[in-house]
Design a protein around this nucleic acid. Structure first.
Lengths: 192, 192
DNA sequence: CGTCGAATTGATGTCATTCAACTACAGTGG
DNA sequence: CCACTGTAGTTGAATGACATCAATTCGACG
């Protein structure tokens, strides 16, 4: 999820609980089946959050570019094995935020509590929209929604990953794109 | 979402902010486009949370039987119009919990804060699983997962609503059910 | 320049939808 | 009590959307 940033007195006092790390493209930050120990806040680069289904196919749940969080907060909070995998799509600089940090700052700072609560609500809203889209939209609509919401990612993320995020195959996405391009072309030509 | 219950001193002091209400089957508790003012905690009955897609089709996002919450926490928290609709599938007794209640108890009680945080994390985990299922599973797998997770609802909810929840048509669900029944029959016969 | 993965394209298959007909059943009013 | 009506569920046939498989092409990079 996206976060606007954390600052202030109490923050400084808990800052020693934060670590930063550098990851290379392809590095795995959270392996499926292990407990998620940290939330990853991306300062630079791009992370990917994914699940494996019963047939072994990978499905991308979320992208996390600069300023966003990647984590399995459920796994962190309940201390149970995660179904998700998090890895780096680009070389990335990341801030690691453990549950201890959340706990320390939560008990110390009202401001942080409300910040964190906002994060959680944002996250919920976000996934909720995703469910609605997956339930109600066909391939082309999903893609167009994606374009509107993450125009920047279009340029950075290989198409096959976008397809995975949308829940379709790379081939289908390719066809959807062609169709849209043709429609746009005809649309413009007609307007002339 | 499900909640185990709220009790204690601080709770009693904020209890006057709670209201209860009785709804009839078919009554609408939250209309699409309006801001969600209350979370609904079901003491008896069954609520439904749904979205409308661009073609006007309804998709059920969540069922809320006894002990569960139905609400759009995003809409409540950010005070923005909801994309969801909540109505009663059965005659229902409901506790209405406004944002003021959350705020009051949150500032008064550490216990409640953590309870609420747990609720939010539960909710996230829940929707996350739903996304994974919608991305990766076919109709029959979705249905079987539903059976495992909500065996009680199977008996109470009309099939067409289950279909809507699963993101398939009632006809498809009917066929899936027949297929499963046949498979089970053959399976048992073979074991004899 | 050669190699390897990404993307495109075509042919075909599968899963689920759509549309329509029909059955079963609950609720309503005569 | 029965006919009337509406809704849920089932079934069949045709269609549609997307997947799968296979063959190229494109493009980045060593």
């Amino acid at each position: 999820m996206q976060g606007s940033g954390i600052h202030g007195d109490e923050f400084d006092r808990a800052a020693h609980l934060l670590r930063t790390a550098q990851f290379n493209k392809g590095d795995v930050l959270l392996e499926t089946g292990s407990v998620c120990k940290d939330a990853f806040h991306v300062t630079k680069g791009l992370l990917r959050v994914a699940t494996l289904d019963s047939d072994g196919n990978e499905h991308i749940v979320q992208f996390a570019p600069e300023g966003w969080f990647a984590s399995d907060r459920g796994s962190m909070y309940f201390n149970e094995p995660s179904k998700l995998r998090i890895d780096a799509i680009e070389d990335s600089a990341v801030v690691l935020i453990g549950q201890d940090f959340f706990d320390a700052l939560s008990s110390a700072s009202e401001k942080f509590r409300s910040y964190n609560t906002t994060l959680l609500h944002n996250h919920i809203r976000h996934i909720q929209d995703r469910v609605a889209l997956l339930l109600g939209a066909r391939a082309d609509e999903r893609y167009q929604t994606f374009i509107r919401m993450y125009p920047d990612l279009l340029l950075r993320v290989p198409q096959k990953m976008i397809a995975s995020y949308l829940g379709i195959t790379p081939e289908s996405l390719s066809r959807v794109r062609r169709e849209l391009a043709e429609r746009n072309f005809k649309g413009r030509a007609a307007k002339k």
